[in-house]
Design a protein around this nucleic acid. Structure first.
Lengths: 167, 167
DNA sequence: CGAGGCCTTGACCGCGGTCAATGCCCGTGG
DNA sequence: CCACGGGCATTGACCGCGGTCAAGGCCTCG
């Protein structure tokens, strides 16, 4: 598996392309996001060190991607090329076992995020985020965190002001 | 695996319980949902015929559940008891293969719903829902669909009125 | 029949978005 | 070493999507 170094801002996947690889982050940070009908960016996932990022749907079904993947920071990533990556059916048992566990954990996490979006206020969501990913709060610009949480940077700034007063 | 018949409204799982089984719906329809800090119900998933429903996090980790599962209609469900259900590590290869595929598809679907919640308007979300699950639109009360889509029944009613005029 | 649940409609409200101005930080070049 | 410029955070005024609340009609089922 080969590694590449990419500067901040490099785009690895665009909408309408077929996703042919996954990316394992060795250093730096990537993100995936969509741009909606009014031109706004909405972040789906962050991938700091040791995280895997891809467009699972496009990768598995061979359909056109709807998302972007790019580098939030100068990064080094390992490329998991589809051509060298076995299908589920041809995998060794141990590998399949590892993958299943990853899928399951990812599904649990995604479900929790969904629940949070459905049922929590913007303030609760930000608070949960700071508890769950304190490192990322330090590391990422506020505007990206706001996008991930489904709110505007202005509103996140307002929330932080409010929380600071409380304690 | 044993089957049970349950009347509409029967609750199969409550918050703070440990989830010890999955439910495969043979007839009828179940739903899972949370109740948030202001007492509002938010639907996570519908499970009509042949769908599986559970609290994956509580089931796998043995932690306390945060969700409800109950019957939307009189239903017949097959109970997949944890005691008789092998861990990933002990599964036969074919079974693990099937499960991995289910997890993957579920993850893709959940991701798409997340994207929709983040980046689409309420009107777009309702429109997508009618395209993706036309049967459920017929079958379920509007208030449940509204809850699933992250809006109030009143607002969904308003949207339907608007769409009816357009065409 | 009567009661309760669901859908609809409309008036009002508020959370969070939009837009614009300001200031800060930092990287780049003279 | 400082001047400039661009991106990000903050603040505040205003706006609008969607929520809240209440009333009325309709259907279903006891």
């Amino acid at each position: 598996m080969k590694s590449i170094k990419i500067p901040k801002g490099t785009i690895l996947l665009r909408p309408n392309e077929i996703c042919k690889s996954g990316y394992k982050v060795k250093m730096g940070c990537l993100k995936s996001y969509v741009i909606n009908s009014s031109g706004k960016e909405h972040i789906i996932q962050f991938a700091p060190e040791n995280w895997l990022i891809s467009d699972l749907e496009s990768f598995t079904k061979g359909t056109k991607s709807k998302i972007f993947i790019d580098a939030v920071e100068d990064s080094e990533v390992e490329i998991l090329d589809k051509n060298y990556f076995p299908e589920f059916e041809e995998m060794e048992h141990v590998m399949l076992l590892g993958l299943s566990t990853k899928l399951r954990n990812n599904l649990i996490a995604t479900n929790n995020r969904l629940i949070s979006l459905l049922s929590s206020t913007s303030e609760e969501r930000y608070f949960e985020f700071t508890k769950t990913y304190p490192q990322l709060v330090q590391r990422l610009p506020q505007k990206l965190i706001a996008s991930y949480l489904g709110m505007t940077p202005e509103h996140l700034s307002y929330i932080k002001g409010k929380l600071a007063k409380k304690g």
